[in-house]
Design a protein around this nucleic acid. Sequence first.
DNA 1: CGCTCGCATTCGCTAAAGCGAATATGATTT
DNA 2: AAATCATATTCGCTTTAGCGAATGCGAGCG
Lengths: 123, 123
Amino acid sequence: MELFFSALADRTRLRLINLMGSDELCVCFFVEVLGTNQPKISRHLAYLRNAGLVEPRREGKWMHYKVVEPSDPHAAHVFSEVRAWLTEDPEMRRDRERLIKVCCAPQPPVLIQGAPKPASLTA
Amino acid sequence: MELFFSALADRTRLRLINLMGSDELCVCFFVEVLGTNQPKISRHLAYLRNAGLVEPRREGKWMHYKVVEPSDPHAAHVFSEVRAWLTEDPEMRRDRERLIKVCCAPQPPVLIQGAPKPASLTA
DNA sequence: CGCTCGCATTCGCTAAAGCGAATATGATTT
DNA sequence: AAATCATATTCGCTTTAGCGAATGCGAGCG
């Protein structure tokens, strides 16, 4: 229970959860959108993984992360409400817009060239 | 938002919130039931106060604390779900039973003799 | 098969959290 | 007014969290 809330008690991790939305997302997009270094992202994703809030999937050399529903019903309920909460935060909104912009750019940033785009944006 | 979750990311603070339930409670009861020193309780109550989750009320030399509904609707929703969650935790359950036992004892512990009992137990 | 690419982990370091012991504060009692 | 009581705060310390820089590692590519 404390682990669960500790995982949510950090802005970077909240931003990661927000960016995943309901799809999985490639790590390089997190790095690009949050505009920070890669080890930082990776560490926070590991934190979320240990807390059981997120699951990785390998696709060639790329790693994708997606949000996973907690097994405990109360945790699940709280978590889904938190994700709805994120939707209304201004910074979170900006992050999501930035993700779209980055994906759809005719000349995408070097960091994400060739990376598998999120399914929700290619469909 | 991080402040909110940080406040919940500590077992002692969760136990305090749990003990308040829906009534206000005198500080000395927290000390007695958690079986720890007084400054520790006081510091954690201050933390909850700063996070806006709790409100103090003075009654003579006694201080009472009660849970307060967060102004943000999302926070309020999450918070109430968290409090329901606490209800089912074994340690939290034991704490509440211990509170009742301590209040109703014919010879209460010295620490709480003369302290105003929680309204829910005197009614 | 060596090289690069994407990501994970390790390494020092700094900052913050939590703790018990001691002390301060503010209200009551004597 | 002094002593006492309930609570808050401060102090010094230890532990933990978060950071950037550097390094490790598995998967694809030349």
